[in-house]
Structure formats: structure tokens, C-alpha cells
Nucleic acid binder design. Structure first.
Lengths: 212, 212, 212, 212
DNA sequence: AATGAATGAGGGTTCATTCAT
DNA sequence: TATGAATGAACCCTCATTCAT
């Protein structure tokens, strides 16, 4: 159930065999994902991606105008997939606390199934490149909006901007850290700790303050 | 009171050449800081650093074996300076909560005074690379140790590894975000929110200051 | 009948690109040979070889990982060619003295036809380096082996190591000297004198030809 | 009794302590000899010679206009020294065969006492650089002159030019080869084999034909 | 005389990108 | 569509040489 790159058009191809162009594109995305995850954006050259994908150097440019575009594509497909999976999982749930937990659980599951991808997208902390910045900023903006509303409604003593930066960095870094080596913490530890660290939540000793 | 790369001793230099060397080195560090902050490690070349410092290309290599060594030097000098300032500020204070606040306040003050440097050290540019990771890892390791002790002593319901990643990412990201534009939040908002977000602390509405 | 870097097979190239690659490679080898002969390994840069071959700088590295590899290639192709020509010429001849003469004659003929190449391989330019040494050592090792056997069999009063160094140096130097300017001695003078100087041979006045 | 570089002027300095300038020059020559012998002309930089001599980079240029001049100086001082030692040793001897032997013996003794120097001057075969070329050419010219006279007088069946190239290359190569590792052959083996290989001499099996 | 920091031309090498086939 | 050889700008780095002290 991992993210797939072969879906190009919403409608499936007329016959069983994917078109050659689509297949080549898919292989480039796959090769890019593997190489970026292993070596980072900077160390990978377009020629090596092509080679790894089993196509000629020039073919790369028939599909992507450059390395960064490929990178962006990889990441944005992945993000969209994650979002839709989280939305499905949380559909129909009312309690905000439960929604949060379900979305975190889906995030963790997605991470397990797409470790390479996560390493590409979030690798090297929140400082890794324009695309990672973009993700961070998008995530942080959403969170800030939510927190702003809660501050207004509940009188939370936090600064929404500061807390949003914190939360976005936390999610990205914890997920990347865990993807590097999932034996570092159990799935439950990750979910529970992220729940407790949610801004505005209790995190006091032994007193889960009625939460969840 | 910003970090300086000048000669350490106020006494005059032992000979003419030494002071010239020191001066050149200082200018390279300064130029490197400015350029790294503005464009990131990857985009900056040693030739441009030299040019910006007003020296010849080859001179760069008389002082630093390459770009990364200069970067490391900038960052480690800055970190050491920050640490010593935090230690001085917290010297003699007993209450852990107060120590934490004082250290955060010093961090914020340092950030105000060394915005460029912070942008270099915590940069989000593409591939800022192993050094930024190193900082994160060093910070995270310290925090994890502290949390592990508190978990053992106080029975905190968090996973120390997860929470340490979260806290390190939070500190780095919030500080970098604020350094980008200090009008985004007041000094107090930054300090208070970071205090409240400390793992194991209350983050409930209107929690009385100094709770813990 | 000089050494050629062209395509081995007389049949047309399998595809357009391959022949272009081969052609470029041939031109680089040719340009390298000419430049090395004229200026020596040290004075020649890969950029100039490329320029002389009418290709871009980077193209050089598509074919040879560096200057020394090109040099090695030139020399080892030439040596292999010389060897095979000497072997063909001496095929079927029994008398050792005649074999020696025929091989020397072939060496001289080869030298006439490949003066540039000889100048490259046996060059005296500054630091022609490990490859020229390699040739000397290879030649000297072969000779030493032969002499060792003759010393054992015939009781020659020479030290095989010393004599082998002498003979290898003699062949290389005489050939290089003659290649610099073939009017310095007639083909016959070169062959006859090298025959007479063969260690273990008579070199007395008016020694009857074919003595041994 | 090795070659010394401290003799600058024919007359000794007025007082016992050599002048500072002379001393510096001597140290540069010594450092150059050691480094050239170990690493070759090309790999050695003027800065490293200076450093090795314990003086500043710029000082090098107060004594030698460049690296090659230092090299030439080293070599020509050594050659002059060798010549004068050979002349002294052969003084008063009449028999040409004995003169030859004595000169060869002196050459071998000189080589033992100045291995580093020999490695500098003759290193890497007869192809090592302009200075080595110079030596070779000078030696070859002398030999050719001698041989030309013998050919005229005795009717030797050799070409003087070819044989002179051979003999010069032989002497240089054998001496260099032996200097690399004097255990390769005994002093006597070197002298005797070089005697036997002298152009125009007998080198037939077991029949030293009255020679020497 | 000596110092040694500074110079800057130039070499080696890489790689994103093009284009003829 | 795909190929892959070729391009060439730009990078990193070295080192012979200068020159202010």
C-alpha cells in the first residue's frame, strides 16, 4: 500500500500494458527516490538517476526539466497520498482528540510503508532543502491557523506562530528520525509522545489530565 | 556583545605578519558568515568568500582547507560562545525552572545579537549538511539524557528519544524562524512559549508560571 | 603500416553513436601522441589535448580518466603492436643470432614508421614518469631472465642484473636517439651496432658477422 | 667524503663560522637533494624545500631563481666532484684498460657515498628531465669522441654515435639501478660487468681474450 | 638577509544540459 | 520517444612567485 508513481492519468490506460512513456517516467521517479534517500539531493546527478532507471541520460530531460522538479514531484505525490490517507482514516470521527490520534496513527503507518520516501522528503532535519522547507511551511501554516483559533477560543497561553513552528518541526523531525531506524521507538511510543507534546495539551507526570 | 572573530588578546600582535594573518582570517570568517547566511553552504564558493573578504582566491586555502572547515569553524565558535553565555547567565541559580528560563532568555538575546550567525548555523538552505545535523544531534543527545533521568525519577509518560527529537527540532526551528524576522513574535512570547512547550511541563490553558 | 587507433573491424560500425565515440577517441589518442611527443607528459594538459583533437574539455574525461591513462593507452598499444610485429617477423626462424637480428630490424623499421610514438614512449621530457619506467622494467626483466639462463648454460662472465639494465637502457636510448633524427645513423649501423653490443657477444675489431 | 655544498668560495671564510647566507644556501641544497631524491623534481615544491631547510618560503628565492636552478646546481656540483675524484684516482696510470677500471671503481665508490645524490641526478632512467638529459648528452659526447678515435685507429665495427648512446645510457642506468639498492650486485660485479660491456671489448663466454 | 602572508593564473575535474542520430 | 556522446561553464585547489615588514 505504498505510494505509487505509475498512476499518471485518472483513467487507467486502455490496455493492460502501461505506455512506454509512462513506464519510463515511473522508473525515473523510483530511481530518484532511491538515490535521493540514499545520498541526498546534492550528491545525486541526473545522469545517475537515468542510469539507475535504465534509460539514457537525455531521456531524463524528456520527463523532468531538472533534478529539482523530479524531487518536487516525488515529494508532492507522497504528501498528497499521505493527506488523503489521513483524511480517509479520520472520516466520520468527531472528537478532536480522537481525530488527532487517528491522523498520527496514519502518519506512523505511512512512514513504515514509505521509509525511503520519508527519508527523501524529511531527511536531515527541518533544514534540508527548498522542498523540505516548503513542506515545513505548509504544515506550519495549517497548524498555526488551528492554534490561532484555539488561542482565541480557549485562551491558550502560547504564541501560535512559535508553537506552530515547534509542532511542524517536531512532526517532521520525529518522523524522519523514526524512519531512519524504526526500532528506536515502538509505534505506540511515537504516537503517544506526539499526542502528549501537542501544544496546549497536558504533559504532566502521571496525570494524563483526562486526555484521550 | 556579538560573537567576534578578532584577536583574543587586547595586547598588540607579536609581529606584523601575525596580525595581518589574523585580520585576513577574521575577514574570511565574516565574509563566510554573511554569505552562508544569505545563500546557504551549497551556493557559496570559496572563491566568492575570498572575493567578499577582499583577498585572493588562494588566500582562502591558506586559512581553511575548504568551505566546510570554515563553516564548521563559524558554527562551533558560535555555539561555544552561546553555551558560555548561557552558563554565565545561569550561574548561581538553583531552581531548575528558573535555570531553564534564564537559559532561554540568553538564547533569545544571543539570537538577536547574532542573527546572521544563527541563520548560518540553523540554515534551511539546500544541503546545509553534516554540520547542522551535528548540532541537532548534539542538542538532542543532551536533552534525551536529561529526559531519561526525569522519566526514571518522575515517571513522565513520554518516550525520551521521541521527545528529545521534538525538543531539539523545536529549539532550532523556532530560533531560526525568529531570527529570520524578529518582529514575528516578541522576545517574551518566544521565551514563554518555549517554556510551556518543554516536554513534561504543563501546557494547559493559563497554567501558572513556574508550575513544574 | 603504422600503429593505428582506428576501429578494429573493417565492417561498418553497429550504430552511429558508437562510431562517433570511436572517432573521438581516436582523435584524442592521436592528439595525445603528437603533443606528448612534442612536449612531454608533464607539459601537456588534458584541456590542450582535447582542444588539439577538436573536442570540448569535458569530452576528454568521457574517454580517459586522466592524462596518465591516455599516455598508458598510447604506450601499451604501441608496445603490443611492436611485439606482435617482431614476433611475426621472427616466426619460423631457428638460429638465435638470426632471430635477434630480425627482431632488431623490425624494431628499427617500427621506429621509422612511428617516430612520434617512440618519442612519446621513450621520451626524455621532465617526469615522463612511471610508464616509461614500466617499459624499462618490463624490458629489463625479460632480458635479465634470458641472460640468467645463458650465464648458467654458457658461463658468461657478466652479472645478469647489471647487464640487463645496460641492455634495456641501450635499446631504449638508442632507439629514442635515432627516432629524434634518423639521419644520425643508417638503419644498418643501428642494427649492426646493437647486435655487436648484445651482452655476451663479441665486440672485438672486425669480428665476423654472426659470430656468437 | 661525500659531496659538500658548503664550499662557496675557493677561499675559506675568514673565520670558523660560516656566514649565515652560506649556511642557508647549504641547507637549501641539502633539503633539495633529500626531497628530490625521495619524490622527484615534479612532486617537490619550493615552499617545501624551504620548510624542510627550516627557512621561510621567500628565502628560497634569495638563493635560487627557481626549483630547476637548485636542481641544476645540485647536479653540477656533484658531477664536478665525481670528475675530479676520477681524475685523481686515474692520475699517473698509463694502461687504458687500467684507467677505465680505476675510473669505474671510483664511480662505484662515489655512488655508494652519495646515493641520494645519484638518485636525484639519474633517477628514473635516462628519461628523467632536462638536467639528466644534459648529463647524458655530455657523457655521450665524450664517449662518442673517444670511440670515434678508436674506430679510426683500430677499425672497430661499431657506429660511434650508436655505441656512445648505448654506453652513456648503460652507465647512468646501471649506476641509478645500483644506487636504488646496492645489495642488487656486489661492487665487483658492477665494475667487472661494466668493463666487459665497454664497446669494443670482448664479452665472449669464458674467453676474456686477454682483456684487462 | 630573512620572513611568510598574499597573490592569481592555471590545472584537473564535474555535470546539467543539448542535439544529431 | 529514446539515445548517449558531446558540450563548456564553473568549481575546487595548487604553487611559483612577489613584496611589505
Amino acid at each position: 500500500m505504498s505510494v505509487s508513481h505509475d498512476v499518471q492519468s485518472p483513467s487507467p490506460p486502455p490496455n493492460g500494458n502501461t505506455s512506454r512513456r509512462t513506464e519510463t517516467r515511473r522508473r525515473l521517479l523510483e530511481a530518484g527516490t532511491a538515490l535521493f534517500a540514499a545520498e541526498g539531493l546534492h550528491a545525486v546527478t541526473s545522469a545517475r538517476i537515468a542510469q539507475h532507471a535504465g534509460v539514457a541520460t537525455g531521456t531524463f530531460y524528456l520527463h523532468f526539466s531538472d533534478k529539482h522538479v523530479l524531487f518536487e514531484e516525488i515529494v508532492s505525490v507522497a504528501l498528497a497520498d499521505l493527506r488523503s490517507r489521513q483524511d480517509s482514516a479520520a472520516a466520520g470521527i468527531q472528537a478532536p482528540a480522537e481525530v488527532l490520534r487517528v491522523r498520527l496513527e496514519e502518519l506512523v503507518r505511512f512512514t513504515e510503508e514509505n521509509r525511503e520516501l520519508i527519508l527523501v522528503a524529511f531527511a536531515r532535519g527541518p533544514e534540508s532543502g527548498p522542498i523540505t522547507q516548503l513542506i515545513h511551511d505548509r504544515v506550519a501554516t495549517d497548524i498555526e491557523e488551528r492554534l490561532r483559533r484555539r488561542v482565541a477560543a480557549e485562551g491558550l497561553a502560547i504564541h501560535p506562530g512559535v508553537a506552530a513552528q515547534s509542532r511542524a518541526a517536531t512532526l517532521i523531525r520525529v518522523i524522519a528520525w523514526w524512519a531512519e531506524d524504526p526500532t528506536r521507538a515502538s509505534r505506540e511510543d511515537v504516537v503517544e509522545t506526539l499526542l502528549l507534546l501537542e501544544p496546549g495539551r497536558q504533559a504532566s507526570p502521571k496525570a494524563p489530565d483526562g486526555a484521550l
